[in-house]
Design a protein around this nucleic acid. Structure first.
Lengths: 228, 228
DNA sequence: TTCATAGTTCGATCGTAACCGAAGCATCGC
DNA sequence: GCGATGCTTCGGTTACGATCGAACTATGAA
């Protein structure tokens, strides 16, 4: 039969634990060096090098040389969405990691998903935006309302800038920890950048989790109440 | 490290060519026996049996015993969506099958995607529904309009029946051959069933392709014109 | 120049999983 | 009961790929 595109190739690429860990780490959006990726994969640099070459040949990664470092990133947003969707799927099937580990709670509270906010806070934000009428959930899509647009302007986000990009403004992204949708798209990215710029939150060095400051936490919860 | 769900497990399950072929075949929505699946995988029944056991243990497949046959199907629609999304991704990266084969054209024209219409005709149908105002494409979601609902009633589809199901009415699904969206969800299913019931088209025995009769072809093109 | 760091390539080992033949169950038709 | 069919389990072979040590290339620093 051999019908359609070859999913076995990319399945096999993702199917190795070391490679899967590297890809998951890169879903954090940050460019990482080969040595760092060897660390997250739990393997030596030699092995990591061959893995990275395969991932690059498969079109999942791109590398950028900078001095004697090589920075690897996911090839594009489509790869990030694929990985995230597989995580959502795996979480739904109970294919979870054996030991949750100490960083799990922080990761579940707030983490970065390629370039936008995910985890409990990400889901909460979208719920609140929908409840307040800033975003309409229509079918399985999301649309920004006029009301929402003016509210965003108040917190310093100019939506007309975002519209000029080819990327969709609002996109819903399934959250693997919450098993519900959070906000992706260029607006999702802009909101997270906004929080980081304001100093409400910051990214951690080696993890995908996002740490809110006490003040940032307060502001965030005020801005996105649960029962709005 | 070791953040989040284990995508390596399902990646590895899909990563074997024989298993990938079986899964792709099952995306046709039809239940297949172990022997049939061995055929599409290009392996003996013994080997297929072990593969199927692994896929079942991984939650991707379910089996139903019926007499001395065992019928395998995808576990649920989420699996079908995962496979289809991986196909779309793979097609975009150029991970195509080596030789297109003789059945390719028919497959590209019209095929079944779990339970709804895909391929050129699937994409054309959605485009036409949007152009005529029966469906609104809003954000990256799809909504049926009142006008669309009454038009559907004319061709014999009662939307209120569909609404009662928990499954979303309209969903967009990326088509790997056309690289554009077609209509999924319970409405997508209902439309395809409608065509099959009317005798406009029929499913083929061993492939995912859908064959339109000359009359059905005429009716379909009349109902969903390109420049409506 | 020399040394140190980052990364790749080579070579060899090792483990696992895919594979099939043969035997073993289960179900159907007779 | 019998044989035939559909499928699974067992045993043994084979092949591929993940892994690492060691050697090699490249960039940067002193």
């Amino acid at each position: 039969m051999k019908e359609g595109p070859d999913i076995a190739q990319i399945g096999a690429l993702i199917g190795d634990p070391a490679r899967a860990n590297m890809l998951a780490a890169l879903t954090g959006g940050r460019a990482l060096t080969a040595t760092e990726l060897a660390g997250v994969g739990g393997i030596t640099v030699q092995t990591a090098s061959t893995h990275l070459a395969k991932l690059e040949a498969g079109g999942l990664l791109i590398q950028r040389k900078q001095g004697r470092h090589r920075y690897f990133t996911l090839a594009d947003e489509a790869v990030a969405r694929l990985i995230e969707s597989m995580m959502g799927f795996a979480a739904g099937r109970g294919h979870l990691r054996h030991q949750p580990g100490p960083k799990e709670p922080a990761l579940r509270k707030a983490r970065i998903c390629y370039d936008h906010l995910a985890g409990d806070y990400g889901v909460r934000m979208l719920d609140s935006l929908i409840a307040s009428g800033a975003i309409d959930a229509v079918g399985d899509g999301l649309v920004l309302t006029e009301k929402g647009e003016s509210e965003l302007k108040c917190i310093g986000i100019d939506v007309s800038d975002l519209r000029s990009s080819r990327r969709p403004l609002c996109r819903s992204c399934l959250d693997w920890s919450e098993r519900r949708a959070h906000l992706a798209g260029s607006l999702g990215k802009a909101l997270l950048s906004n929080f980081l710029d304001k100093g409400w939150a910051r990214r951690t060095a080696e993890s995908r989790s996002i740490l809110f400051s006490p003040e940032g936490d307060r502001q965030f919860l005020r801005l996105f109440p649960v029962d709005a």
